[in-house]
């Protein structure tokens, strides 16, 4: 069966995670739950990117006794998406921490976490 492969399953999982995170962002009223939705969205995107870089039956992109220099190109998976995702995860943590700092600050100003109470910029 064509669809029952590792990369397809992880790709679909990542896509559903992205949709779940999006649903959390747009439907929840609590600010912290929206931040959680953002982090789920992040995780889903990372899973999608890694599964796009997967080569069927490939091994990790690290050369050692099992994988030598000469015929490495036929054995290992794509190292480029992995490097991108590695930086993306760290930046994701920074963005999450920044959002949480804003949430704490907003709560200090208004005394509430409900998004409908913040109407200062609404016209």
């Amino acid at each position: 069966m064509e669809i029952f492969q590792l990369e397809y399953i992880t790709l679909i999982t990542g896509g559903l995670l992205v949709l779940t995170g999006l649903w959390g962002i747009i439907s929840q009223k609590n600010l912290i739950r929206m931040v959680i939705g953002f982090s789920l969205f992040d995780t889903g995107l990372h899973v999608i990117m890694i599964s796009i870089g997967y080569i069927r039956n490939g091994t990790a992109p690290i050369l050692d006794k099992a994988v030598d220099k000469v015929n490495a190109a036929g054995q290992i998976v794509d190292p480029l998406p992995q490097a991108l995702v590695l930086t993306a995860i760290v930046i994701g943590l920074g963005v999450t921490a920044l959002m949480l700092a804003y949430v704490v600050r907003l709560h200090k100003e208004k005394g509430s976490l409900n998004i409908t109470n913040f109407k200062d910029l609404k016209w």
């Binding site: 982090s39 997967y54 490939g58 998976v77 590695l86 995860i89």
Partner: peptide, 17 residues
């Protein structure tokens, strides 16, 4: 990530995420 042959990313995600 570990099943997708990406140990570096798996370590990062486990430590940070």
């Amino acid at each position: 990530y570990l099943t997708l042959a990406a140990p570096d990313v798996a370590m990062t995600e486990a430590a940070i995420g």
